[in-house]
Amino acid sequence: MSDMLRAPAEIKYAEELDWLESVDDGPKPFSWRLSPKMVRLFILGSERADGLDREISPKWFGDRSFVERSIVTLASDRGLLLIGDPGTGKSWLAELLAAAISRNSTLVVQGTAGTTEDHIKYSWNVSMVIAKGQSRASMIPSPIMTAMEGGVIGRFEELTRSTSDVQDALISILSEKYVSIPELDTDNIVFAKPGFSIIATANSRDRGVNDLSSALKRRFNFVRIPVVTNKKSEAEIVRFRTEELLRRHDIELELPPTLLDVLLQSFADLRAAASSASSDDERLESALSTAEQIGVLEDAILHSNFFGASALTAEALAGSLVGSLARRSPEDLAILNKYWHGVVEPRSREHGGEWDGFLSGGRKAIETLS
């Protein structure tokens, strides 16, 4: 893991997965490495009622029903589509599901405008084709085809970012469960083995980019992941990710709980302002997701560690927030300036404490960028 900038979930939590597999006596669908109950437990963490000899830490924070519905879908013959706003943890949940079920979360196709049918089916090794002709040996299977042959989970990120031709190619894979290779005379069909399924993700803000056809929608079970608005849950997510960052960088830096409260309250205020705005010019371009909160906090921590004191300050947090959210000039800067004058300043006069430093740090950052 020390040689990887970011280890996939099946490597990062390998010891935990090995232990769960060793004590798992529940029924397992197809080629699953863990039973559905153990998959849920791996993702959401253990409770005292589970009766395990060790604690399993939670890795995804959200409603239990979303995880259970996702697991049940993957145990059927339908694909799973996780849909929601940016930063709601769709990709992380997909990775955890694939790691727990197949011990391989890396069979991924990234949907973009440049994604082609070859990326989800197969392509050819040109030099081998020239030397020996077309054969299974000269074929390069896509991650999806590799998942089919292994009876494991394949992933498709940002499905609505890919073109309709690519989306249509998924229909036969999800319904017929095989891929034809017309270039070959023999051994020209790859059949999916039991256990194969696809987890796709889609950004709800991309609606209208490349809408899914009704035929493709019918082959997916939809699980909509909402934005986390519960402060307690959001605090757990932000703290969990921040502690991972501190361990990865071997940073010893104090994270005052009062500063975390300031960050959570600021995002809640900005979301409320965005929901009441009458036009896009009055809304920040940022989705104000939990993932963006984590990014703001990580930026402030790294800045404080390399260029500041031994503790995170409200000034550094405010500067990071303004720098991260002010993407459009002058629109976003005007929105943030209004928030600092209309909300942060009165709150500083009323409560003082960390809000005083947050006020001055934000003002300085806005002035610098203006």
Rank of each mutant, 00 (worst) to 15 (best):
L34S: 01
L81G: 10
R54A: 11
E345Q: 15
K364D: 15
P141H: 07
S266I: 04
P346N: 03
G342Q: 12
R239S: 15
D356H: 09
S138M: 03
I173P: 02
D206K: 04
P58N: 10
D211I: 02
L336G: 07
D165G: 10
D299Q: 14
T186I: 12
L44I: 07
Q167F: 04
G111S: 02
T258Q: 12
A14Y: 08
L359T: 03
S266K: 07
S31H: 05
I130V: 09
A137Y: 04
L159G: 04
M145L: 15
S57H: 12
A100W: 03
R103Y: 07
M145I: 13
V227Y: 00
E95S: 14
D50F: 06
D77T: 13
F42D: 01
S162R: 02
A169L: 04
L259A: 08
E254L: 11
I181R: 01
E282M: 14
D3P: 11
T88D: 02
G89R: 09
R219D: 04
W19G: 00
D3V: 13
D187S: 06
I225D: 02
R33Q: 08
D185Q: 14
S278K: 14
E315F: 03
L325H: 09
L34E: 00
S46R: 10
P330I: 12
G319P: 02
E354R: 07
I140L: 12
K177S: 04
R219G: 07
V39I: 13
I173K: 00
E345H: 15
I251A: 01
L245I: 12
S164F: 06
R48S: 12
Q110F: 11
G353M: 08
A273D: 09
F42V: 02
P143G: 05
L41A: 00
A215K: 08
T229E: 03
R239P: 03
S57L: 12
S70I: 01
A365D: 10
S31T: 13
S76F: 05
I144E: 05
S275L: 13
E149C: 05
R103D: 12
G154W: 08
E117D: 13
A14W: 05
G51E: 04
A365W: 12
R155C: 03
I181S: 01
S70L: 03
D281Q: 12
R136V: 04
A137M: 07
F42W: 06
E282P: 11
H351P: 00
A215Q: 10
S70D: 01
L333E: 07
L270W: 07
D206F: 03
R6K: 15
G79T: 02
T201P: 05
Q293Y: 06
G362D: 10
K338R: 14
